[in-house]
Design a protein around this nucleic acid. Structure first.
Length: 297
DNA sequence: AACCAGGACACAA
DNA sequence: TTGTGTCATGGT
């Protein structure tokens, strides 16, 4: 149809594209109908799920598709990963409830910035803020005819050159000074991603927590969603509530105890387990709210 | 219309 | 160490 489009199909088993892209690990994907569009490594992409395959389209034929396979983590051995999860009933329920849920391998800076913007925000709002940020300070990328414009996620140096007021104009509120500080930190080259990748997780986490506005939770999100440390286990309000209910008899547990628990109980792929816990808990919450809302007059 | 959201931080006790 | 208030914003 569109002469510029280059398409490819990746055979996949057990990959739920919709659940994965909507599971709150990345904030740059937009859905229209059954298709998802986003920008990866400066390239516009449209993804669609087909039976036992993911179809991808870009505007110009890339030399190869490794960048996309890696981003989507198509070759991650999901069945073997899930086999390492704890065998307790609730964990198994969560696994069955989210078949094909995957983790992506995201760009470190985009991931860091996205999660700095995530604090006490709903996922839809984080997506809106990042969209404004990209439109204002990102670079336009080539899109097919008739498709709305798309932009890269702005580089750290670009945001570092902004004023706090300019960032606030993207409706990020009190997160603006944090994002600005982080952008400067990264733009000054004070974060060595390569070294982090070859460091123990504790050292990598320390390097992230040294950034203003980045605490343990956001640091763990970055460690996990960049694909560097699959054992990283971000504990947010959903996870905290759920673990308390399921593993601590609904008793209040200190943050320290929770972290201690997550660091040994969920195994070497704890971060994947975490995503199943998170997504299942969130879906259950939505279902409950839906039920209650329907019951109201 | 009030409530609360994938937190972090400064400060109190 | 654990508990508070504060920070903006808008969807439900």
């Amino acid at each position: 149809m569109n002469p510029e489009l280059t398409q490819v199909s990746f055979p996949v088993a057990d990959y739920d594209l919709h659940t994965t892209l909507a599971s709150g690990q990345s904030f740059g994907w937009r859905r229209q109908g059954d298709a998802w569009t986003g920008v990866i490594h400066g390239r516009w992409v449209r993804l669609r799920s087909a039976p036992s395959a993911i179809q991808a389209a870009t505007v110009q034929a890339p030399a190869d598709w490794r960048w996309l396979r890696e981003y989507l983590q198509i070759d991650a051995p999901l069945d073997r990963i899930i086999a390492t999860f704890p065998q307790d009933p609730w964990m198994q329920t969560a696994v069955r409830a989210c078949p094909g849920l995957r983790l992506l391998r995201q760009d470190p800076w985009e991931c860091l910035a996205g999660f700095i913007l995530s604090s006490t925000k709903r996922i839809t709002q984080i997506e809106q803020i990042t969209a404004r940020l990209c439109a204002c300070y990102g670079d336009p990328v080539g899109v097919p005819l008739g498709v709305e414009p798309a932009y890269t996620f702005p580089a750290a140096a670009r945001l570092a050159a902004c004023s706090e007021a300019q960032l606030r104009a993207c409706k990020m509120g009190f997160r603006a000074p944090y994002l600005l500080a982080a952008a400067r930190h990264v733009a000054e080259g004070r974060l060595d991603w390569k070294q982090m990748a070859s460091s123990p997780i504790g050292e990598a986490r320390e390097a992230l927590v040294a950034i203003p506005g980045v605490g343990r939770k956001i640091a763990d999100c970055v460690l996990l969603f960049t694909g560097l440390f699959p054992q990283a286990f971000p504990v947010d309000v959903w996870i905290l509530r759920t673990l308390q209910e399921q593993y601590f008899k609904n008793q209040p547990v200190s943050p320290k105890k929770i972290l201690e628990f997550t660091e040994h109980y969920f195994g070497p792929w704890a971060g994947y387990a975490q995503q199943y816990v998170f997504h299942h808990a969130r879906m259950q919450g939505a279902a409950k709210r839906g039920d209650r809302d329907k019951a109201l007059p």
